[in-house]
Write a protein that binds this DNA or RNA. Structure first.
Length: 455
RNA sequence: GGAUAGGUGGCAGAGAGGUUAUGCGUGGGACUGCAGAUCCCAUUUACUAGGGUUCAAAUCCCUACCUAUCCUCCA
């Protein structure tokens, strides 16, 4: 398995720290508002690759943090006249709900930042002891210039960062590039006790406290959106490595590309974001997954209704073929496939930089091939092909499960319709078809035979 | 200003020195009572611009221009 690693800046072969075992941490969201398709892209992608890695034999522990204390949460709470805990809890639940709707179910554990205050304090203490952090009137800060590798991940030179640092002016800190580890409480804010008085953790520290708790000071893969590379992930590296003195925090870094709207990054600040909830009003979760996976993970993608519609078209081609295969009853057919060869080819494609886009292209090729030979495929072969689709689906999750329905009733209705058609009573037969389609069935006539499935 | 990606046919988007990408769209055809689904054919020499290297360049080198991202919170 090889993939693009942000730290080395190239596609490199993956070697897990422990044989056949992978520890992966992905930055979760701050829970203060509805989630947008940028979140969807990142979390669908990591869901897919974790499931893929499991499918080829790795035991993967997938850990994700939840930022449940933050300025934005506090702000939102005061706007809505409620408590930060209430906001955090409400949107955490919403996050779980929407992820489950998207079929994102591979995360082993969601770690909420506020449950790791002791670990956070312990890390800050160690940074102070080692001379990397200092206390001021309003908090504890990490002194960036003490950590010489700062900038390595984002490929920036430390002097440059120092020169360009914009630092917030009213903070009492030594240098503008220094970042906060602990914020001392201002009146009315939520707080936890600490050696530096009442306060709350900074944003970067929660992740290293959580990963140290579960994975130790080094682990295999750290993932997240590419907008987190600087300063968030740079800060995480500085924190953990200044304590551990090791060469790595995570051995590999995987960053997902951004979603663009009208060639501009979609973001909260630009207010050009589309929520997942809104997309799901008009498109299925499978269609959204397909749209997002039909691109290289580390490139930005242009998102629009057109791209969703395109995903819908392509996906329905796959699903139609899948349903046709399910309906095959033929005993002997000439068309055969090499199951092992195809599965191996697909695994190779995924193993090369998680190339879901090329994989989709391959599947479309297989679909075309099957359609050309559809009358020559026997039941046994059809089941084999379905197994291939099921394998792909075990990590892509793009083909919806069949809803159960009483087939005998449908068949009875369709038998009546066939009789009507043979008597050329098309007004009635078309009416029946229209009604069945309206209730979500796909109906296809082929000479005297009628195939159907649930859309 | 610094850093990082890029600029490919109507659109989306692979490829990385010599061989048709592919998909969508569009046009035509086959099948069909119609619809749908599917198939076939066509869309007959696309690679930002200018230089260079080479027998050969979309692909390597140089220059210019353009776009996005990061350098503040963000997936």
């Amino acid at each position: 398995m090889r993939f693009y690693d942000t730290l080395s800046g190239s596609i490199i072969e993956f070697r897990p720290m422990h044989k056949n075992r992978i520890n992966i941490f992905v930055c979760g969201p701050t829970v203060y508002d509805d989630f947008h398709i940028g979140h969807a892209r990142t979390y669908i992608f990591f869901d897919t690759i974790v499931k893929f890695m499991r499918s080829i034999g790795y035991s993967v522990f997938y850990l994700q943090n939840i930022t449940d204390i933050d300025d934005k949460i506090i702000k939102r709470a005061s706007e809505e006249n409620t408590t930060p805990e209430y906001i955090a809890d409400k949107y955490f639940k919403e996050y779980l709900r929407i992820m489950s709707e998207l079929g994102v179910d591979s995360v082993n554990y969601y770690a909420k930042a506020t449950l790791y205050i002791d670990e956070i304090i312990s890390q800050i203490k160690r940074m102070i002891d080692k001379g990397y952090a200092y206390e001021t009137s309003d908090g504890v800060y990490f002194e960036v210039k003490k950590f010489k590798d700062y900038g390595q991940l984002s490929k920036q030179n430390l002097d440059n960062i120092i020169e360009n640092a914009r630092g917030i002016l009213n903070e009492d800190k030594k240098n503008p590039e220094d970042f906060v580890l602990w914020k001392k409480m201002k009146p009315g804010e939520p707080y936890w006790e600490s050696p530096w008085g009442k306060g709350r953790p900074g944003w970067h520290i929660e992740d290293t406290a959580i990963t140290e708790t579960y994975f130790g000071d080094e682990y295999d893969i750290h993932g997240g959106g590419s907008d987190l590379i600087f300063p968030h992930h740079e800060a995480e590296i500085a924190q953990m490595r200044s304590i551990s003195n090791k060469k790595y925090l995570a051995h590999y870094w995987i960053h997902t590309g951004m979603i663009n709207i009208n060639s501009e990054k979609m973001s909260k600040s630009l207010k050009n974001y589309i929520t997942i909830k809104d997309v799901l009003k008009d498109y299925t979760p499978n269609e959204l997954r397909f749209a997002v996976l039909n691109a290289n993970f580390n490139k930005s993608i242009e998102f629009s209704r057109d791209s969703l519609n395109e995903a819908r078209e392509a996906l329905s081609r796959i699903i139609n073929t899948y349903r046709k295969l399910e309906n095959i009853e033929l005993e002997n057919g000439d068309y055969k496939i090499d199951y092992n060869y195809i599965i191996k080819k697909y695994i190779d494609i995924m193993s090369d930089n998680f190339d879901t886009r090329s994989l989709i292209k391959e599947i479309m090729g297989l679909v075309a091939e099957i359609n050309k030979n559809i009358d020559n495929i026997d039941k046994k072969t059809a089941l084999n092909i379905l197994k291939i689709f099921d394998y792909i689906n075990s990590f892509m999750n793009i083909i919806p499960r069949k809803r159960s329905i009483d087939a005998s009733t449908i068949n009875a209705i369709l038998n009546i319709r066939s009789m009507l058609r043979s008597e050329k009573r098309y007004d009635l037969s078309d009416y029946i078809r229209k009604e069945l389609e309206a209730s979500g069935l796909h109906i296809e006539d082929k000479n005297n035979e009628t195939q159907w499935w649930i859309e």
